[in-house]
Design a protein around this nucleic acid. Sequence first.
RNA 1: GAAGUCGGCCAGGCAAUCGCUGGGAGAGCAAUCUCCUGGAGGAAAGUCCGGACUCCAUAGGGCGGGAUGCCAGGUAACGCCUGGGCGAUGUGAGUCGACGGAAAGUGCCACAGAAAAUACACCGCCGAUGGCCGCAAGGCACAGGUAAGGGUGAAAUGGUGCGGUAAGAGCGCACCGCGUCGCUGGCAACAGUCGACGGCACGGAAAACCCCAUCCGGAGCAAGGCCAAAUAGGGAAGCAUUGGUGCGGCCCGCACUGCUUCCGGGUAGGCUGCUUGAGCCAGACAGCGAUGUCUGGCCCAGAGGAAUGAUUGCCCACGACAGAAUCCGGCUUAUCGGCCGACUUCCUUC
RNA 2: CGGGGCGUAGCGCAGCCUGGUAGCGCACCACCUUGGGGUGGUGGUGGUCGGAGGUUCAAAUCCUCUCGCCCCGA
Length: 118
Amino acid sequence: MQDRRFPHHLRLTKPGEFSAVFNQGKRGGDRQINVLCRPNGMLHARLGMVIAKKYLRRAIDRNRIKRQIRESFRHNKQTLRGFDMVVLLRSDIRNVSNSLLRDMLKSHWEKAIKICAK
RNA sequence: GAAGUCGGCCAGGCAAUCGCUGGGAGAGCAAUCUCCUGGAGGAAAGUCCGGACUCCAUAGGGCGGGAUGCCAGGUAACGCCUGGGCGAUGUGAGUCGACGGAAAGUGCCACAGAAAAUACACCGCCGAUGGCCGCAAGGCACAGGUAAGGGUGAAAUGGUGCGGUAAGAGCGCACCGCGUCGCUGGCAACAGUCGACGGCACGGAAAACCCCAUCCGGAGCAAGGCCAAAUAGGGAAGCAUUGGUGCGGCCCGCACUGCUUCCGGGUAGGCUGCUUGAGCCAGACAGCGAUGUCUGGCCCAGAGGAAUGAUUGCCCACGACAGAAUCCGGCUUAUCGGCCGACUUCCUUC
RNA sequence: CGGGGCGUAGCGCAGCCUGGUAGCGCACCACCUUGGGGUGGUGGUGGUCGGAGGUUCAAAUCCUCUCGCCCCGA
């Protein structure tokens, strides 16, 4: 049985942790969603999210996207261990379905690690 | 049976698996783990009003400013709700209404029209009376009388009929309308085939300024409080001690106290406020009702970059608008549908 | 949580306070000027005044609700 838990210490919370990833991380993903990645020297992965109100005006849309990202991270965190990840929303993806979003994120995780591992 | 009106309620359900989180219990030095239990809405939204709470004075006085605006009641309070009145609308059940004052004052009403609020009357009508001519009928010009008719405009100073007159006119009368006073009913707004008086003096607009009545101190949970750490009363310049700050426009008043700028350095961590409340459910009583009182029972989100989710299967009416951030009472806006109750109109049958 | 501003022709702006004609510049079209083009000159086309409702005889303008965009303070 894989460990699929997502406790609170696997999240980026402080401004300093975010700026470290933004300054030193590698950038992947596509035009709609950027995925930034940086080695953190730990045995587990950590996740941060930037969901701007500019692209998703309604709170319920922002909540849905964040839940989907967390869910995808929870299922893929074994392959991401040792990295800090920041997901940066770049466009209005209100109309993208949950299943499509899940496929997009899974490929983004894998690509980001390949770029970052070089 | 069809169409419709009003009020209330619901907001996919069940199961399995993997997760997040508040509280309680247990294990462990600790990180953490296990079990039980709770976990978005009718609008959580817009932030348009009203409060509670906290600090400034206990929220004080005046000017200024703002809000409300038929009457009565409800409420912690309201711009909300209930009942009533008036007006509009619909066959009706019903629905809608910024619904005080224009004889306190100032200003406005384009164009057209004679005239837009003081009737100084354009085209007209008359010219009885007075003057002249004529025997007379009548004619002429002026003074003057007039608001019937025409035309303009969104709007033109009561309407219809009869009398009356030189022509006319509330000039007189009847009916309708209007105003003032009284009476009756009603707490009141207001109403009345009621009575008297007034011939009528009343254009619109107050979502123009304004007047009247009532209400409103300011800031907001990043309010405010506590703990820890750091700065440590550092250097320079300026202003002032009838000053500065709280305090939002000003004055008074009250409280505290030196203040501002630059240079240099440092912190922005934790706890609390934080959910038991004008609370919810049931029943009885008072009231037309909003609502209130009493009795019994219940505890029903509380995060902190921010939880309440995901996947799969089955069922059905195939699921709308949409996500708490100090908390309540409203209003407004968005919304796929479904259920219940009361009522109206039409059709059919008995 | 609190406060402020904007929306008018394809673009950038006046007009709103104090209600009656929507105007200016660039752009566009036609003509003149030139051998041709540019420049210059003359004339012209083009606007549900963000949306809905109300007040008024009459609304871009006044009032209410609503949509979108931008900015500021804590």
